[in-house]
Structure formats: structure tokens, C-alpha cells
């Protein structure tokens, strides 16, 4: 039972900036929220492999091919770290996976958009990973120890993801007319969806207050979104890319960049499953999972047989 006493003691630990470890007492709701949030994060890394993986075989130079493949592989690694840390809460990876490929568990909506040209790969590195870094830098300070540690590792590895995308986009933005066109077009398509990556506005975000009180998060969706916009405006300008928002304007009073209305209808629609790629993403993940079943089973069967043989021999 989550008695008042225990809850107070728990909150006190959080307020003292202590980290919560797997075997520590924690409110049931804290555990549930963490499992939901961490597994969603993990699913996002895995589904995120698909739009980028779409360009591995078509990357325009061997060097870019290696970079992209290494990056997509890192996403698998990050998904793995995150599932691992979710498993410390008593969740089962296979069950978590089935929750999103057959059930209703969510992953980041950003990956329900298609990668149409190679410039999309650069923009994913710059904008999508840029947004992810803003988020994960905060999560690296999360109150749950294993989640914080997973994010520290992810942040360390992810810095190259953003840099490589930004570098190549800068090259394209200063390149041939065709390259410039692709670069600007990709930014036009991805800009608004990346703003949505931080989640709904604070007044429509039911979980935020609780997560902040427990220091799972330390900043609100809108705060994170604002720091992302401030950063990206500068970076876009530096490489001659225009962000597709006529209302972007520096606000002298706040010291931040004001931006236009985010198309939230689109956001809720994509979350509901009506994005351009939702169905294909899930289909691809299901296919991999189902076609892998006989492989996973064979390996377990081999291990069982081997163990039996060893027991007999001794």
C-alpha cells in the first residue's frame, strides 16, 4: 500500500535530489508512469530506425553510408539501453514490444512521416535529433537512476548524430540548386512536426505536473520547446536555411523567439494513427518480430539441448 507516510518519505527523497534505484520503495503510480514513459522512449528509438534506414542503401557516398548505418545502429542500441532500464522496473521486454506492435502503446509521432529525399536524413539528424537531445539532456537528470544513466549514455553517443546531419545539410544548403531545393523542402516538411515532439502544450499535458513533481522530468513541454526554437533559429540562419514560420520573431521582453500556432489537429490525428506512415511502420515492426520468432525459438531450443547434454555428461 502507498501509505501517506511512505509517500511523504519518497517525496522527501526526490526533493533532496536523491536517485531512486530499482529495489527502492516507490509509489505504484511512479512505477507505472516510468514504465509508460520509458518504454515509449524505447519504442521511438526502434521505430526511428525505419525512416532513416530507408536511405542506407541509397546514401550518396561511402562515407555518408557508413555514418548513416552507424547512426541507425546506435538507435537500436539506445532502444536496447532504454528497454533494459525499463526492465529494472519488473517489465518484460517482449511484453512491452507487443504492447506497441499489437496494442495501444505509443511511440514518438515524428517517425510517422516519410523520408522522401536524402536531405530528410540530414534534417532528421539536425532537427529531430536536436529535439531529442534537448529532451534527453533533461532526462539524464531524471530521478530514476537507471533511466538517468541510460540517457547519459545516449546523450554521449547522440551528439555525433546531430552534428553529422547539420554538417551535411549545411553542405546541401550551399550546394547545387538541386541540393538547395531538397534541403529547404525537407526543412519545410519537418519543422512543425519536430515542434510537436515535445508533446502537447502544458495546459493540455495531463502527466506533466506529476512527472515534474517526481523529477522524472525537470522542465515542462513548453519550456523545452522554447529552448529548442531559440537554438534552431540561430542554427538555421547560420547555414542559410529558412524556417517555414512567418511569425518567428525575436521577443525583446522575454529574450526568446516567438513562433506561430502549431498545427495541433495534425498532431492528435497522427497520434491516433492517421499519419502518412503509421500503418507501414507498425507493419514493418510486426513483420520483423513475427519473422524473427523461429530464430529466437531455435536459439533457445539449442541452449536447452546443450544444457541437457551437459547435465547428462556430468
Amino acid at each position: 500500500m502507498d501509505t501517506r507516510e511512505k509517500l511523504d518519505a519518497f517525496q522527501k527523497r526526490i526533493d533532496n535530489d536523491e536517485k531512486i534505484e530499482p529495489k527502492d520503495w516507490m509509489p505504484d503510480r511512479y512505477r507505472k508512469q516510468l514504465i509508460r514513459m520509458m518504454s515509449q522512449h524505447a519504442h521511438s528509438e526502434i521505430v526511428g530506425m525505419l525512416p532513416e534506414g530507408n536511405w542506407i542503401t541509397r546514401a550518396p557516398s561511402l562515407e555518408r553510408k557508413l555514418v548513416l548505418l552507424a547512426k541507425v545502429q546506435d538507435e537500436a542500441g539506445h532502444g536496447l539501453y532504454l528497454y533494459s532500464s525499463t526492465e529494472t522496473l519488473g517489465a518484460r521486454r517482449q511484453e512491452l514490444v507487443e504492447d506497441y506492435i499489437y496494442g495501444t502503446a505509443k511511440y514518438s509521432s515524428i517517425f510517422n512521416y516519410p523520408t522522401l529525399t536524402y536531405a530528410d536524413i540530414c534534417v532528421i539528424g539536425w532537427l529531430v535529433d536536436g529535439a531529442a537531445i534537448v529532451n534527453q539532456t533533461m532526462l539524464a537528470k531524471s530521478s530514476y537512476g537507471p533511466y538517468a544513466r541510460a540517457n547519459i549514455r545516449i546523450c554521449r553517443e547522440e551528439s555525433f548524430h546531430k552534428k553529422q546531419g547539420y554538417e551535411m545539410l549545411a553542405k546541401m544548403a550551399a550546394g547545387t540548386p538541386e541540393q538547395r531545393r531538397m534541403a529547404q523542402d525537407a526543412v519545410n516538411r519537418w519543422w512543425w512536426p519536430t515542434l510537436m515532439m515535445f508533446g502537447p502544450p502544458d495546459d493540455e499535458s495531463p502527466n506533466s505536473a506529476e512527472l515534474i513533481r517526481w523529477k522524472v522530468k525537470t522542465k515542462t513541454n513548453d519550456e523545452l520547446r522554447q529552448s529548442y526554437v531559440d537554438q534552431m533559429v540561430m542554427e538555421a540562419e547560420a547555414i542559410g536555411i529558412k524556417l517555414p514560420d512567418p511569425e518567428l520573431k525575436y521577443n525583446n521582453n522575454t529574450g526568446h523567439w516567438d513562433f506561430g500556432e502549431i498545427p495541433w489537429d495534425e498532431f492528435w490525428n497522427v497520434i491516433k494513427g492517421n499519419g502518412p506512415m503509421n500503418r507501414e511502420r507498425i507493419k514493418a515492426r510486426r513483420k520483423a518480430y513475427e519473422e524473427g520468432a523461429w530464430v529466437r525459438e531455435a536459439a533457445m531450443e539449442y541452449a536447452r539441448k546443450k544444457q541437457l547434454r551437459e547435465e547428462k555428461a556430468s
Binding site: 526492465e87 518484460r92 521486454r93 517482449q94 511484453e95 507487443e98 504492447d99 499489437y102 496494442g103 495501444t104 520468432a293 529466437r296 525459438e297 536459439a299 533457445m300
Partner: peptide, 19 residues
């Protein structure tokens, strides 16, 4: 948890153990 393609719980026996 609603699953459109529910499978019996026993299929977890082929989940690789944790190390």
C-alpha cells in the same frame, strides 16, 4: 492491455533471458 492479435502467455518461454 488490448491486443488485436493476442497470443498465449506461454510464448514468453522463447524470450531470451537477461544478462
Amino acid at each position: 492491455m488490448s491486443k488485436s492479435n493476442s497470443k498465449p502467455i506461454s510464448h514468453y518461454q522463447n524470450e531470451w533471458p537477461l544478462w
